[in-house]
Design a protein around this nucleic acid. Sequence first.
DNA 1: AATCAGCACTCAGCGCCAAGGAGTGCTGAC
DNA 2: GTCAGCACTCCTTGGCGCTGAGTGCTGATT
Lengths: 343, 343
Amino acid sequence: MNLNERKIRILEAIITDYIKTGDPVGSRTISKKYPLGISSATIRNEMSDLEEMGLIHQPHTSAGRVPSDKGYRLYVDRLMHKSRLPENESIFLRELIANNISRIDYLMEQTAKALARLTNYAAVVTEADGEDDRLKRISLVPVDSRSLVMVSVTENKKVDNTIIRAENIPDIDELNRISSAINEYIEFYGSELNEYAAGVVAAEFEGSAELVEKVFSAIFKGGRKNSGIYYSGVDHILDYPGFSDVSKAKEVFSVLEQKDVLHRLLKNNSGNENEVQIIIGGENNISQLREISIIKTSCNLGDGNAGIIGVIGPTRMNYSQAVSVISETVSSLNEVIKALIGG
Amino acid sequence: MNLNERKIRILEAIITDYIKTGDPVGSRTISKKYPLGISSATIRNEMSDLEEMGLIHQPHTSAGRVPSDKGYRLYVDRLMHKSRLPENESIFLRELIANNISRIDYLMEQTAKALARLTNYAAVVTEADGEDDRLKRISLVPVDSRSLVMVSVTENKKVDNTIIRAENIPDIDELNRISSAINEYIEFYGSELNEYAAGVVAAEFEGSAELVEKVFSAIFKGGRKNSGIYYSGVDHILDYPGFSDVSKAKEVFSVLEQKDVLHRLLKNNSGNENEVQIIIGGENNISQLREISIIKTSCNLGDGNAGIIGVIGPTRMNYSQAVSVISETVSSLNEVIKALIGG
DNA sequence: AATCAGCACTCAGCGCCAAGGAGTGCTGAC
DNA sequence: GTCAGCACTCCTTGGCGCTGAGTGCTGATT
């Protein structure tokens, strides 16, 4: 069976209509609302073929047709035309980004909020996990007489704080000497940094040996495993078609709480920077999310920080609009950051 | 009408039963399940009185009685006996806290998770907002050739990072000199620190004047307004009685996303440290949360950081169990932190 | 005066059934 | 190949009556 032009037009009509109304669409609806110049009977025949190809299916006899995951896939790959974001919305995005550029946590939080508001779906923003990211430098900042914060900066410019406690915290100058000694070892040994260096530095600053040991063990322990995830608009999930049944919604919520699952899901697996990826329904292999689609892309969060922004919607979502919101957000991030930080 | 002992026992029976079963409880149920030695007819008369006093009400004629907010209030204030947490759960809590003590964000996140798991309600953990918290010290940590991180530490030991960008970032020694110059002014002027100091320091380090200006403006801008809120178990909300109707659950979710509302709600308004507070149903004046009760308390997150931990459940919640989970969590935090950090 | 058995009454919930309506597949004519 | 017409399917809706839980009231008993 070949997928001729007419079948494609019918499929497109079904998907467009279904995305808009949410009702299974029947042959008569198509023949009346879409000017294909063929009768409903003919459309019925074609729909029967489309169903055989697995692109649409019927919830039950005597109901109209609904696109399948495969049908949506064909739609987003070949039929969908990008819509353009209204002027005021893209201005809103740019200003929001510019206002939050100096705090990466705010930036992520606000971006999630904006995505949710513009799409009416749940949105999520997270830092891409820097897998082979290496420590570049540390700095020791005193907090009180018994604790300090070790600020670590990685090659990918991730900044991270760890609390360290010790009996005697030396004064700032000494702390600066200790940290620059440690930094020399970090620079010299890179990822081969080991207990040996810890011993040498501890010996060098014998009054603060305990502290030095603790700093090194914090370094060995490494930074955050999973960076924070910022959500917004999760309440929209309850509006998704098919989720008026509470138990289904509950499944989705509990998956969203499992950060590791979500991180795996959001990870950039195309390899292409800034390319928008779409995962439709069952294509993610998480059974609780089989009626959920995810639109996501990697993005630039400033200072070389890579992030991932995504929208989590129902399989029956407005892909075109969501894609355009996401692309616009990415390009706004890029532009604003470029303008502020320079090429 | 006086609230005699018998009425109280009946009210207690109603609340106990309702919390357990979730069904409106009728006079016959009480006479059979609770050994009060009186017939259902007598109980009916008493219930009628209790209803008149506003302690219970009927969802509809021919249904049993359900406690009102006022009824629950009387219960938690006068009738409830605290339950003790199982040994293994309190051990679990202590270990979890000990393992996360060096990262306040992990600690908050994990504490929320534990609360949610132990209570089966939604849990929330946040830092108490330090209203009159003053900056104590800053430190400048280079990130790359065009950006650095200003680490600020307040009197209440809150640590906060702000990204600062400038054309020319001096070397570490110079940054250290700049930060200690600024720190002298912070120490000297305290909250009176102003543009004048900025000018003086900028003049002193004329090669880095731009940077100094930016650091000062970041200082003037202040730290985080609303600290992060860590949730866990929000999916449980969908199990709460009365929230099988999706639209109600949606209202709750959208309130939880409004951080300012939540901060206001969680703020310690009794003034007493570590005292468990209970807000029942409509007592919070947020209409969307009128069927939600909140159990919360301030707590110690280590290094002088005050936090607030809370459980968000249905008005018909197991107050006794939730209160004991919360108190146990607070005392675990205190103990572990004391043991690790010392007196 | 308090207690309580007995009774009439109310009302949500459930199952059942019939009507209505949307949509299909098939047939046969063009 | 197209399509009008038709029989058929099956979900949805609304009405109806039954059942069971629970109440308030009455009048007898202690």
